[in-house]
Design a protein around this nucleic acid. Sequence first.
DNA 1: GAATTATGCTATAAGTCATAACAGTCCATC
DNA 2: GATGGACTGTTATGACTTATAGCATAATTC
Lengths: 154, 154
Amino acid sequence: MTGKSHDRADEGDTTTGARLASPLDRLLGYRLRRASMMLMSDIVSVLRPFNLSVGEASLLIVVGANPGCRQSDVGRALEIKRANLTPLVGRMKARDLITDAPIDGRSLSLTLTCEGLALQSEILARIEASDSKARDQLNIDQQSLLAALREIAP
Amino acid sequence: MTGKSHDRADEGDTTTGARLASPLDRLLGYRLRRASMMLMSDIVSVLRPFNLSVGEASLLIVVGANPGCRQSDVGRALEIKRANLTPLVGRMKARDLITDAPIDGRSLSLTLTCEGLALQSEILARIEASDSKARDQLNIDQQSLLAALREIAP
DNA sequence: GAATTATGCTATAAGTCATAACAGTCCATC
DNA sequence: GATGGACTGTTATGACTTATAGCATAATTC
């Protein structure tokens, strides 16, 4: 046999190969997607040591900013469907980061535990730091950029 | 039993519920992701009648702009891993939209068929139209916006 | 010519997201 | 105060995307 274990030189290096023409490069949607994926992968790295997914972190952050909020409202705010929110909340409860209490017979109110609040502050600070770093490297007015993006997706 | 079949009033309306505070709204990464998802869902709608996924359409567009290009270069250009590109190309070959030919013993060259070229022009035009529509509704200089996004993700 | 690298392929696993259906609860209206 | 409709949470499931590991072959480099 030739190589035995790792491929090791799989993708990852952008060194080799011809540069191809791509009509996609001129599209706002494509550039948004690439830029989004770039920042998002930074956030994934920030979150990995805490064993949190992006969805879980979003949940912690929104619940932390809205103690006692309804689970259904969190779902709407984050555009996460009820069916997918349930296991997300379940995992955070299992880690004692979130507690829930019934509001009425059907609605649940969510609140961070002490531990959850500490974690939320920690990751929010790191995420904001990572985000600022990306924003500061742009030579465009950050406020008008954010406003423009808000026009696309309110 | 009460309701029998459709939930019908599941998510989809943003009417009800309290508006929650979200620290995420100030993050560039989060706004980029939302804006990206918004435009991307338009593109998915454009592509649905043609029975094409976003990945498949990207493949057609890049191969159409680079007849005879190497499959490996396409993968790098679109940041699609080899292992995932294979079935993508396979489906396009099965629909007679793409043909391949060996360059050397390992590399493949990809080219659109007549039918593939016609389809590529069609969807590229529609995607560009949808993209322009989104861009024109922004009150920010489109060129500096694209340049800024390119700074984030070259 | 031997080791390394490149390319394509297969199989598989993980993660995200959407849909359907169900059960319990609230509410408005009659 | 009963009843039908709407809201909420839950479960189960399937589709789709992406990542990883390994294999086979061919090119490259020394």
